[in-house]
Write a protein that binds this DNA or RNA. Structure first.
Lengths: 337, 337
DNA sequence: CTGAAAGCGCTTACAG
DNA sequence: CTGAAAGCGCTTACAG
């Protein structure tokens, strides 16, 4: 990276002069036009870009904390808005001034992110959406800043979780109350951590509550509207179908509902649906039919992450804390108690 | 803000020692336990936080550009994901390494953001969702970095716009083709810039195409599912209703569709709907009914913003450029040609 | 085990 | 009109 010194050398002037040109105090400082030309020329040749860190240090401008939010920008991207909103609300509430950097990383490739290992980039980081591999990576490194894991477990780091077992149990329990003896599942192919746990918990909750789930009725698809569409089509080809369907995300449920509406499967008369609600509750409240969801309190969880960071940076906490949030059952037409 | 010097003074040691304690090279450097205690104590008393800029400068770590995305985190927040995805795709394509900072600002209060006026924070900024007031503010300041306006017009700044007139015209034209002579509108109460322009353009396009829009059928609401619900309810109380409805956002259309389904207004038989699609196309593709949208190419627009920044920072462009993107009509059941 | 000094890349007050 | 020098807050190689 060329510095102001390189520009000065190439243009044959002092670094003070380069700085003056750079800061466009041209008139005020009466820089000679030809000097200006020489400097601009050198800047272009070298592709010079000022060093922000040096400027910042020099200006003694507020030393604001920078908090990085590591998030995978795949299908889980739409979830990100809630996280940002939660963080925002908390910083406002605390009247805490900080920069939020969104660091997009690829699933399984958190290890490619250098930020976590640098001492001079972020004051703290919130990491969401980690895969098994990413978690393993995290367990083996020594990050240079406090880290809060979003909806993942770890002894090493701060964690803010949803009680996934409880979320799945709430869904199974409602089916049991409604007298269902059999249920189907639409879940994802690739085992992402939280979804995997929820699906497993749902199955074991059903076992406990005497609800049978045959393997053939565990349909795996991609976590998107389209995935829900495909799964629902597959479901409709099966014989002797259960009348209760658990969808491991609202995306899946909305895609599935589209097909059921189209094919004349009436909800809830022919089939009752409960989904895990990751998106804003509006999304499933105003769909046709409105879908009953176990709604993950993602905004609150994000706010909690921010709150923990605030306290860490104020030197109020040192040992990792682990918070668990309860999810809420929102009753809509697709399955009412 | 206390510095390492303050910590050194208070704890009675040199700044080198404080630095060693801070960097936990305790074993390696064999710091005396009591020295460690003294330093940690002073750090806690002072609430010391290391200055990232100084660390960064000292470490000569890569001088990565930081690009700020100014976005209002109100109802338009859900739109943000597309923007981030677009930016991400472009940085990947260009293999360009930079940090993305999301700076949330409040509607009408862009002037409260200090970042735009600081020379040492961001290398460039993308600003979206500005109100009239925010635009006026921008026209009157001298920002310290290149700025790209997202979907707004200005001679002063770089701009990447959707052709709002064209988007509205496409919707009106389809109604005309279908033989509609009258239409209704659901739009927003608060006049946000882009929506305001689209609604106006739609009205004038209708005039041109001989489609009548009575004032009573311009229903204003809040831009959300709930807003669409309320607007649709109001619409259904009116007599002698048109059979064509233009919704200025997909939120409004989805909320409205919910009510029409519930109240037995059949779409498209009783009422044809076209909406402006701000969200991901999935959202309206798999709703019941699927909604015809004029889809704004927000991802592409965001990618374009990033591309412009890339070229500015490479010193390839100096004069503001203005790009205009076309939106695309996606035909679904709610209104087919 | 601890401290004095150099230097990261800038900007600005001052001298010429 | 231009340049030499000080200093922003850190870390690290070196000396003791």
């Amino acid at each position: 990276m060329p510095t102001i010194k390189d520009v000065a050398t190439l243009s044959g002037v002092s670094i003070s002069t380069v700085s003056i040109v750079l800061n466009s105090k041209l008139e005020e400082r009466k820089v000679a036009p030809q000097t200006y030309e020489k400097v601009m020329n050198a800047i272009n040749i070298l592709g010079y870009q000022p060093n922000m860190a040096a400027r910042r240090l020099r200006s003694s401008e507020s030393n604001k904390p920078t908090i990085s939010l590591y998030w995978p920008l795949d299908y889980r991207a739409s979830f990100l808005v809630n996280i940002l909103l939660g963080i925002r609300e908390e910083t406002k509430r605390l009247n805490y001034d900080c920069d939020i950097v969104v660091s997009a990383y690829e699933n399984d490739k958190l290890s490619a992110e250098s930020g976590l290992l640098s001492k001079n980039k972020f004051s703290a980081a919130i990491i969401g959406g980690t895969s098994y591999k990413d978690m393993e990576y995290l367990e083996n490194i020594k990050p240079q800043m406090p880290i809060i894991l979003f909806n993942r477990n770890s002894d090493k780091y701060f964690t803010v979780c949803n009680d996934n077992d409880d979320a799945a149990y709430k869904a199974a329990k409602l089916f049991a109350v409604k007298g269902h003896k059999r249920a189907a599942i639409i879940t994802v192919e690739t085992p992402f951590l939280a979804m995997n746990i929820r699906t497993k918990s749902f199955i074991s909750a059903c076992r406990e509550l005497d609800i049978e789930i045959e393997d053939i009725f565990i349909i795996k698809s991609e976590n998107s509207y389209e995935g829900g569409v495909l799964a629902a089509k597959k479901f409709l080809t099966l014989e002797n179908r259960p009348h209760a369907l658990f969808c491991d995300s609202d995306f899946l449920a909305l895609g599935a509902a589209h097909i059921f509406n189209k094919e004349g499967t009436h909800i809830p008369e022919d089939l009752e649906i409960i989904a895990i609600g990751m998106l804003s509750p509006d999304t499933t409240e105003y769909s046709t039919p409105p879908i009953t969801v176990v709604s993950l309190p993602s905004k609150k969880m994000a706010a909690d992450c921010m709150n923990i960071i605030y306290n860490i940076l104020k030197n109020n906490i040192t040992e990792p804390v682990h918070k668990v949030h309860e999810s809420k059952l929102l009753f809509r037409d697709s399955c009412r108690p």
